[in-house]
Amino acid sequence: MTIKRIRFMQELLTFFGLEGRLHLEWISSAEAQKYVQVVTDFTEKIRQMGPNPLKKIDAAVKGAI
């Protein structure tokens, strides 16, 4: 069910324009290497995409008030 729910969220975010910013991976407690790899890869991917555009908007709204 979790896989399906996350897939739903991913597709909704894609439609809205935040594609690729949500990731799900199954990692057992015995797979330390895999854990490191997945987190490193995802961090790198997000870094390349740049900051979440919502952050900028949030700051702009707060600045305006």
């Binding site: 894609t14 439609f15 809205f16 324009g17 935040l18 594609e19 555009p53």
Partner: peptide, 19 residues
């Protein structure tokens, strides 16, 4: 239509349009 909207605009463009 949802499919053409996805095809016609890229991620960034969809975001700014919804916002």
């Amino acid at each position: 239509d949802p499919d053409t909207f996805l095809d016609d605009f890229n991620n960034k463009n969809r975001f700014s349009r919804w916002m």
